[in-house]
């Protein structure tokens, strides 16, 4: 089968599996979901009413078909708690989470690439060791603790940033940016560690290849070898990592938003889980998961497009 066709089938199957999982998760609740939401004191009429609203009074396959059909049209039903369409609630939170994840992505790439190059250049020397220790810590520190520390240092002690007062982008872009800088830094740190380690390894691999020897033997300076030839080849695989990282950043922001009380996907999801607002939880989880899958798909394709070697294989 043609690569793209195969990849599309895989994409379809993955999405299907995610859809099934998200759907069944709330159908395996022992007993009646409506009862689980309303509690044991609910009257039979209340339960019947909620069952009709949730659609759980119909056969499972019918429910699934109905839900899938609606989900394909981005209709995830109505939130039980807010009595508003799930999609509308989700869309209203997009700017916060998206800007947070994007800023974190920019911070992580801009920090990680120079650090990765430095580590590879000073292979086996002081800087390499220091960066290695740094990345180990970066991977180990929980981002929400990092967030708390940042609040403690920059918010409460130095007072550079006002903590926990989110300003919407429409109100003041500068203040909005200021309110997401600290959470973005906390979010970026583990990703910086991942990219640095990856870039360092690929650069060191590249430095052992024939073309580097050729470049050296024809008298190119070490600078131009490292920055032009090796870096170009080493950055390519990093694109894949960055794509995967974006998913991690989206997921990580679910937790970090709670630390900084930002009104994004995270707070919506946590509130929804607390309220047993199943349509909202389902819609959010499905949307985030499918977004991540599609981003990875695009990254995968662009990677092939950027690297002719892979295309020809």
């Amino acid at each position: 089968m043609n690569y793209y066709a195969r990849r599309l089938v895989t994409l379809f199957l993955t999405v299907l599996f995610v859809v099934v999982l998200t759907f069944t998760a709330f159908r395996i609740i022992p007993g009646n979901p409506a009862l689980a939401i309303l509690g044991t004191e609910a009257s039979n009429e209340q339960i019947a009413l909620l069952e009709a609203k949730l659609g759980t009074d119909r056969p499972l396959l019918v429910q699934f078909g109905h839900w899938l059909g609606n989900a394909a049209l981005l209709d995830f039903g109505e939130s039980l708690r807010f009595s508003e369409p799930v999609l509308k609630l989700i869309v209203s939170r997009v700017p916060v989470t998206l800007s947070l994840a994007l800023l974190a992505l920019v911070i992580s790439v801009c920090t990680a690439v120079p650090l990765g190059i430095l580590a590879a250049k000073s292979h086996g020397k002081k800087w390499d060791a220091l960066i290695s220790i740094g990345t180990q810590f970066g991977l180990a520190i929980p981002s929400f603790w990092m967030g708390i520390i940042l609040i403690l240092v920059f918010g409460l002690t130095l007072r550079w940033f006002s903590v926990s007062s989110y300003v919407p982008w429409s109100e003041s872009p500068i203040l909005a940016l200021k309110s997401i800088v600290l959470p973005a830094v906390a979010l970026a740190i583990p990703q910086i560690a991942v990219i640095v380690r990856y870039l360092r390894t690929t650069m060191l691999e590249q430095l052992n290849l024939d073309y580097v020897r050729t470049a050296r033997s024809k008298g190119l300076s070490e600078r131009s070898i490292q920055y032009i030839h090796v870096l170009k080849n080493a950055l390519l695989p990093v694109i894949t990592i960055v794509g995967i990282n974006f998913g991690e950043l989206l997921a990580g922001s679910l937790v970090i938003e709670q630390v900084f009380t930002l009104p994004g996907f995270g707070s919506l999801l946590i509130t929804a889980i607390g309220n047993r607002d199943y349509p909202l939880v389902q819609g959010l989880v499905l949307l985030i998961a499918v977004t991540v899958i599609i981003i990875n798909f695009i990254v995968d394709l662009s990677y092939r497009w950027l690297d002719p070697k892979i295309r020809l294989k």
């Binding site: 993955t14 599996f17 999982l21 991690e248 989206l250 679910l254 929804a272 047993r276």
Partner: peptide
């Protein structure tokens, strides 16, 4: 394919779905 689909969920999101 099932494993890939599980991996497609960013870690904490799957955990949140399951604990909810």
């Amino acid at each position: 394919r099932a494993t890939d689909a599980l991996l497609a969920f960013p870690g904490i999101l799957l955990a949140l779905l399951l604990v909810s």
